[in-house]
């Protein structure tokens, strides 16, 4: 259930259904993907070695743009190399990124 997932959101992001995202502007240091705000760009630093994630374009060193954070605790949508991928928050949380301009 969504509530279970939300309870796992790190302390930095209060457990609201929409979640909070990092401040607009430069993301500093490594953060998890689910904390990016819509419109922010970032580069993948660390992520699970998952075949499907790789096939969807999520690989180390890849740059991406946050497109949308869905309501009701729904997935985040990122754009990678011209394609859009939706990732449940629990998956996005396992991917760490650094902000780029």
């Amino acid at each position: 259930m969504a509530q279970v997932n939300d309870a796992l959101i790190p302390a930095a992001a209060p457990a609201e259904f929409t979640g909070n995202c990092a401040r607009i502007g430069q993301v500093s240091g490594e953060v998890s993907l689910d904390t990016l705000c819509a419109g922010q760009r970032a580069r993948v630093q660390q992520m699970p070695q998952d075949s499907l994630l790789h096939c969807l374009g999520l690989r180390q060193g890849r740059s991406l743009r946050m497109i949308a954070r869905q309501r009701f605790g729904g997935p985040v949508v990122v754009e990678l190399d011209g394609r859009c991928v939706a990732l449940g928050r629990s998956i996005a949380r396992t991917i760490s990124v650094t902000g780029t301009m």
């Binding site: 997932n5 259904f17 869905q70 309501r71 009701f72 605790g73 729904g74 997935p75 949508v77 939706a86």
Partner: peptide
């Protein structure tokens, strides 16, 4: 697929 993504959070419940 867009509909599915928009409503995913609600369906999760």
């Amino acid at each position: 697929p867009r509909l599915a993504v928009l409503l995913d959070g609600l369906f999760n419940r």
